[in-house]
Design a binder for these strands. Sequence first.
DNA 1: TATAAGTTAGAACGATTGGTCAAATGACAA
DNA 2: TTGTCATTTGACCAATCGTTCTAACTTATA
Lengths: 191, 191
Amino acid sequence: MPWKKKYHKPDVLDAAMRAFWEHGYQGTSMANLVEATGLNRGSLYAAFKDKRSLYIGALEHYDTVYRVAFLNQLRELADPKAAIMAAFVAVETGNDGLPGGCLVVNSTLEVAPHDPEIAELVEASMGQVETFFLECLHRAEAQGSLAPGLRVTDTAKVLMGMMVGLLVITRASPHSPAVAPILQQVREILA
Amino acid sequence: MPWKKKYHKPDVLDAAMRAFWEHGYQGTSMANLVEATGLNRGSLYAAFKDKRSLYIGALEHYDTVYRVAFLNQLRELADPKAAIMAAFVAVETGNDGLPGGCLVVNSTLEVAPHDPEIAELVEASMGQVETFFLECLHRAEAQGSLAPGLRVTDTAKVLMGMMVGLLVITRASPHSPAVAPILQQVREILA
DNA sequence: TATAAGTTAGAACGATTGGTCAAATGACAA
DNA sequence: TTGTCATTTGACCAATCGTTCTAACTTATA
């Protein structure tokens, strides 16, 4: 039979993800993707079949490799409030080598409004972040470390909103003076 | 001598603004703009001279006609905390006929990262919203209707962050269940 | 060694992109 | 009426877009 693929699909998706993350969907041409991934047009079209499909693949790659993995890491923290804070601090810190902000948030504004399937992906991804917050809040509530009367489901949505705002702000200017006050506000909500 | 222009520049900018707002910078072609504005290629290029310049014009149009005018309207409210709330409620309500979200926020993610001049415009615009919040907070503080110990400059930045998050969320889904909790959180911050 | 699957390189496709230009048009002064 | 000139018009341009394709090449199995 034939031969193994020379490339490694996750690596290709990772390269494509970075390109889309940096320049957006429309701002990234297939020529850019050829250069970014290192494999050529034909192979790209053979492996994924569209620019759009490749984008969806890159989005899913981002979601599972970065978001899911990172949140699972946070779930192992003993202190649920610290886990929430860690998520926000991670935005401030940024992963080096990676563009600022968040590919899913970028997608929310650029492509989701015009592509229902991608809108679903984006919504699902953001929903799971909200669920993560909710889990943490429930755990904190159970151990009595939350302000009495705090409505956890609403608070999870508020945290989600603040996270999105923070991601947009840090994409524009990573060291914005707004970052610290926002983190402080999250601390106060959880206090 | 010759003759008056048949079109009205603000109207053209308004039409272009809506197109850019709806489909983004890259997602809007000159052909789209020709259709949206009603005047033809040559006139468009004569009046503004680039796609990019037209975009900047549309951004400035948005900023002065919508953002500045709206904030000035809010400044006339007697109650400064009510003015802040009104800004948030306006996002929830939405201007009908206009796309959801905010052109400046869209621009923050799509074009500002790759265009320093536009990044400045965006930053200036958002800075003035923050200043609006700060003014309101100062007025509220002066009349003693603010929680003691609230740090107004930080709070203005927090409100800005929440506003941005809200704008992204409402762009994705105008009637998101996250909207009400976020508004409630703003109320509690101001309480 | 023949065959099959996959990679590679690049030419080529029609469509669309942002941008230009010469000619037609219209309002005013003379 | 005529001359003038800014404005309008739509054809036109080269470049790029996403996509397809062919043909040569590489490796592993039958």
